[in-house]
Amino acid sequence: MGILCDYFSAPDDEAAAAVADVPGGPGSAPDPGLDVVELKGTQPTVQLGTLEALLTGRDYDAVTENSRWCKAVAVRHDGEVLVLSLTDELQAALADAPQSRLREVAEPWSTTEEFWGQAEPSVLAEALIELAGLARRATARAERLYCWVCV
């Protein structure tokens, strides 16, 4: 069984936590105003931590020491459903990155062991472009990024 990951924006941790109670996750939410990017197998923990390190030039350990890095804002069903926060630094890096930079970063990101050698850089680049769009829209609305995870 795989892991489902939907990335979305919300005005605060409380609003993001409410998404944990939506059957099927934020992509299934009855509220059409919820901005969601579905990246089913791209996990917020190691994979997005590595992405943040690549985009910002910060050391991975420094990324993971951030208090918002994968902070659980909601846990349901004995940990089978989670809503995790993403860092403001990752959001800013994604929002500010031009498409050329995202395509450039997709290559080394695809070679990380968490993708098990099965990630196509071009596919990851398109996913990054979608995620960057989400980050830009969230920033414009003064919202933050989160990830809904279902194991």
Rank of each mutant, 00 (worst) to 15 (best):
D78I: 01
V73I: 13
V46L: 05
V73G: 13
L51I: 03
Q43M: 04
T50W: 13
A72H: 02
T64C: 09
V46M: 00
R58W: 15
L48W: 15
D61P: 07
Q43E: 10
G57W: 13
C70E: 09
G79F: 06
V75M: 11
E52M: 12
L55Y: 06
T45C: 02
V63A: 14
R58C: 10
E65G: 04
R76M: 06
E65Q: 11
Q43N: 09
W69C: 05
A72N: 02
D59L: 02
T42Y: 12
G49Q: 00
V75W: 01
H77K: 06
N66Y: 02
Y60P: 05
S67F: 07
T45F: 07
G79C: 11
T64G: 05
R76D: 06
T64V: 03
V83D: 05
V46S: 00
V73S: 14
V83H: 10
T64I: 10
L84V: 02
Y60H: 08
H77C: 01
G49L: 00
A53K: 09
Y60S: 02
N66W: 02
L55R: 13
A74K: 14
K71M: 10
D59A: 14
Q43K: 06
T50L: 09
V83G: 15
L82R: 13
T56S: 15
V63S: 11
E80I: 04
E80D: 13
L51H: 08
T64A: 06
H77Q: 05
N66K: 03
L54K: 09
R68I: 01
H77P: 00
P44G: 03
T56Y: 05
A74G: 14
T45H: 14
C70M: 07
T50K: 12
T50P: 00
C70N: 15
K71H: 15
D61E: 15
W69I: 00
P44V: 00
W69F: 15
L55V: 05
V83Y: 02
A72Q: 06
H77T: 04
T45D: 13
L84A: 04
D61Y: 13
S85D: 07
H77N: 06
Y60L: 09
L82I: 01
E65T: 06
K71P: 01
T50Q: 12
C70Y: 13
Q47F: 06
A72I: 02
G79L: 03
S85Q: 13
S67N: 05
T50V: 11
V73L: 14
G57Q: 15
L51G: 12
S67H: 06
N66G: 04
V63Y: 11
P44T: 00
V73F: 11
V83F: 04
R58S: 14
L54H: 04
L51T: 09
Q47K: 12
C70F: 13
A72L: 04
Y60K: 02
V83M: 12
P44Y: 00
Q43A: 08
V83A: 10
V63P: 08
K71S: 07
A74P: 13
D78W: 04
V63G: 10
T45M: 07
T45W: 07
G49K: 01
P44E: 01
D59F: 05
R58H: 14
R68C: 04
A53R: 14
S67M: 03
A62Y: 02
